[in-house]
Design a protein around this nucleic acid. Structure first.
Lengths: 158, 158
DNA sequence: TGAATCAGGACTAAAATAGTCCCCTATGCT
DNA sequence: AGCATAGGGGACTATTTTAGTCCTGATTCA
């Protein structure tokens, strides 16, 4: 839980590819081939990213996609927003007064504090950071795995 | 996306209830009644929390649950770990060499940095914080909703 | 012994996610 | 023009997760 969707994961890879090919435009098919992600999926991804204006598209023959902004101006939060929609750690109902626990629920803005902290972390990492990791990523491929559960920031001695 | 599961949300409510009744033990049925959450669900929740040793149980007649530690020693991260399992923002595969993007994936430890930051935020909020919010939670009931998508830490003027 | 209460896990149902496909529009080239 | 290439939009299906319920067994107290 509390993980980003696979779509976002792929999206990052796609964006990273674009970031390393800023000279020209890349077709969806080309990106698919280069990344190994299924073409329809790449297409869907790029469409979503285009709608969020993270990439701009050129239609027609010799068309394709390119980043709309420099990599360092694209944050992880942007990507997640584009592909997974709103980041809100709790759910409740978006409607007022629909929560049946209204009277009982003592849990409130503490989650919001967490939410804000998470978002800040997400905004602190840019596509540039993601791409730069290119060379020195030996053992962890995609990501995440070695991050243990109980051990963290303060004391992650592994 | 990037939200906690409803189970965790409920779990927090349940724990908050226990936190305000530390004098004795609370039966699952009692908690269900007090919180308005369906009894089987509360039961499942408490069993999970017990397994994670966040609460301790007494079996038999007049049995029930109680917090195993003071509220300030229970972090949001603990709760999520107990109910949603490992927090790892990316997925990949846990097995070595199973990632088909291995050669292509330029995305690596940047996500881990995010992961660590999130985890830190999660460890920074304790059950006590969640309970304390009791009084002063007027409009946001459960949580989250008012947190807008594009507006965040820096400029959340609402 | 019997009622209360937790433990564990199987099972079903609902919802979110992933992934594919189709038809349309735009652009470039011959 | 007309054709080939490429994106735009959205419907649709399948898969996977998550939620929620229920049953059966073990434990404790009166």
């Amino acid at each position: 839980m509390l993980r980003i969707s696979r779509l976002t994961d792929y999206g990052t890879v796609v964006l990273a590819h674009l970031a390393t090919h800023q000279a020209g435009v890349c077709s969806a098919a080309g990106v698919a081939q280069a990344t190994g992600i299924a073409p329809p999926t790449v297409s869907k991804l790029l469409k979503l990213l285009a709608r969020a204006e993270l990439v701009s598209s050129t239609r027609g023959a010799n068309g394709g996609y390119r980043l709309s902004r420099p990599p360092q101006a694209v944050t992880a939060a942007d990507i997640i927003d584009a592909l997974d929609g709103p980041v809100s750690i709790t759910e409740c109902s978006t409607a007022e007064g629909d929560c049946e626990h209204e009277g009982v629920c003592t849990v409130g803005n503490a989650w919001q504090r967490i939410n804000v902290a998470i978002r800040r972390a997400l905004q602190d990492v840019t596509l540039n950071d993601l791409v730069v990791a290119d060379g020195p990523v030996p053992t962890f491929r995609f990501a995440g795995v070695p991050i243990a559960v109980e051990t963290t920031a303060e004391n992650h001695g592994n």
